[in-house]
Each structure stands twice: as C-alpha cells, then as structure tokens.
Simulated scan of single mutants.
Amino acid sequence: MIRRLCLALPLLASPAQAQVLDFPSNANLQTEITEALDSYDLPTGIWDGTAIPTKTVEGALTRQAWRIEAPSLTTLQLLRPLREQLRNARFDILFECQTEACGGFDFRFGTEALRPPEMQINIGDFRFLSAERMSDEGPEYISLFVSRTAQAGFVQVTRVGVANEEEEALATTTAPPLRAVGAVEPLDLATRLEQDGHTILEDLTFETGSAQLAPTPFASLTALAEYLLDNPNRTVALVGHTDSSGSLAGNIALSKQRAGSVLERLVSDYGISRAQLEAEGMGYLAPIATNLTEEGRQANRRVEVIITSTE
C-alpha cells in the first residue's frame, strides 16, 4: 500500500483546501526522497547548447518516482491528466517540452533525475513539465519528468515549497486505472514508427560481448523491411545499445557493430536500400532498465529504429 506522505499541495492560502496529485490505481510509488530544506534548479527552458535555463528554488523538497503499469500508453497520455490536475489547482505552467525539443540526451543528463530501476527515463521518449503557484504561505514549484519503457510508464515528481503541518499527501492513487482506450493488442511496428517516430526491435537478442544476430528470421525485421519497402522515401537510423558490462568506448563500438549487423541483414536478406539505413551506437548511455539484474541487462541489450527522414 502506498503510504501517505508528509507534504501537501495547498490550494490557494488555506491548508483545509489541500490539493493532491491523484495517480491512477495502477500506479505504484517506487521511491521517495524528502528534505526539510533544500534547493532545486528548476528547468525553465530547453538545452541551449551549453546548459539548461533554470530557476533556483528553495524550501521543503520531495522527490518521488512512480511506475504506472500501462505499457501501451504514450508519454502524452501519461502526462496529460497530471498536467490538468496542476492547472485545476491553479498552477501556472512555466515550461513544457518533449524529447528532442527539450534537447534530447543533453537535457536528460543536464537535470536532476532519480536513478533506475525506480525511475526509468528513455532518452528517446520523454516529456518534462515545470509549474509554479503563489499563495499566502509562499511560492510552490512542481516538476514532472515522464517517460516509458516497453514494460511500464514512469513519472518523477519534484515538489519544492512550504512544508505542510497537517501532513497531507503529495500524491494518492485513487483515480481509475490508466489504460490506452481500446488497446487490446500491441501496436504493430509500422504504427509505432508513424506514431512515435521510433521503436525497439524487441525480438532481437544479443549475448554479452557479441554483435552477431542469430541466423533465424526475426518478425521485427520482416515488419521493418515491409515498412521501408512500402515507404521508399523513409530513412531510419538503427541504434544499438548495450548493458553496462565493460568500458564505455568498448560498448559504444559493440553497440554500433550490433546496429551494423542488423543493417546488413536488412540489405542482404530483405533487399532494403542502404540509402534508407544508417547504423549508430550508444553503448550503455541510454538504459531502459536496471543493469543490476540479468533481466535488466538483457533488456538494455537492444537495437532501436528511429525515423530520420523529414518528409
């Protein structure tokens, strides 16, 4: 059971009007950090090439990581109900962005985030929001960092403001379960690419230290090949990822080799034009699961496909 927390979101000036973020009942609190007095560099803009614009705020600080058992939802579907709750509680949205529009990799690692496995941030699919409101007690600030993996959605909540003596909850889980409307079967690869601009080739497997695909056919490659043949003007990047075993330089080289082996299979077995493909490697810099377990390491050994054409 989720325990009630020691901070409140007071509505206007009256503690009796306390407002909480209400997560869906299929959400679980993974971790919480509280400080009676601390500071937080609240992001207020996108990565500008050297840094993220921030506003340093001070007060009682709470950070939480939530896991929502709804793998088919988009980051927008995860964020939208929480954003509306903040607006209804008279917060002003200071800043909001999505993935590359935030600054991508640089934004993800340029601001404070709780560590996996409690909080998972996929650098290819995340949203960020910061908000503030004023009351007689003083200013209050909230930020939401939302991402998802193939298994679940994740939300980090950071709140800075005046401590509430009545020990109201920062967040509860009384809202209905959050599900994708009408989602019975997972979206096919072509739909995921068109909808999200990227997807994981989930049935590919790589042993630690190996860049070779098994000689058997893979359904994800068949689906990707069909998509590329149907859309000859589309170009994609195949991006390899590894677990954290070994050095960064070695893993970047290995991950690029894995992506390259997928590229060669698409060319040789499916007749895909090399002009539609490129291969890159990220090493262990973009995990989607913890590297502390074998299951997590296996999930991190993957190849993603990202649409790179602009038309």
Rank of each mutant, 00 (worst) to 15 (best):
L7F: 09
R3Y: 14
E194A: 14
V262A: 03
I288W: 07
L21P: 09
R108F: 00
A183F: 00
D92W: 05
L248D: 09
E112V: 02
G103V: 08
S273P: 03
A259F: 06
E96S: 08
P117S: 08
P53C: 12
S210F: 07
L221W: 02
L144Y: 13
G246P: 07
A8H: 09
L5G: 13
L114S: 03
L221R: 03
S255I: 03
A253H: 09
G260E: 07
A36P: 14
L213N: 02
A27D: 05
P43T: 07
Y40G: 12
L37V: 06
A237K: 08
E311P: 01
S25A: 15
P217H: 05
A219Y: 04
E96C: 02
A275I: 05
L42H: 05
T158Y: 04
C102K: 06
M119D: 11
S143Q: 12
D22M: 05
L129N: 08
R192W: 00
T54K: 08
L254V: 04
V267S: 07
L193Q: 05
L254R: 12
R87L: 14
L73C: 10
S255L: 04
V262M: 02
L285W: 01
R274C: 01
S261N: 15
Q17P: 00
S247H: 05
P53F: 13
P53A: 14
T205Y: 05
R133H: 10
T308R: 15
P116T: 07
S261Q: 13
Q151G: 00
E118D: 15
R274V: 13
T290R: 02
L213K: 04
C6L: 14
N164G: 14
N26F: 03
L277S: 13
L187E: 15
N28T: 10
T54G: 03
L238A: 07
E32K: 08
S247I: 08
T172P: 00
E166Q: 13
V184Q: 06
Q298I: 03
I123Q: 07
Y40L: 10
A101E: 13
V157R: 02
L178Q: 04
A60G: 13
T308L: 00
L238R: 12
Q30G: 12
L29A: 06
D230G: 08
I123Y: 08
S14Y: 11
P10K: 01
T149R: 05
Q156V: 13
I252Y: 08
R115N: 08
G124I: 00
L213F: 02
T172V: 15
R90E: 14
L5N: 09
I288V: 15
N231M: 02
L178C: 01
D196S: 13
H241R: 10
D92T: 15
R4M: 06
M1I: 05
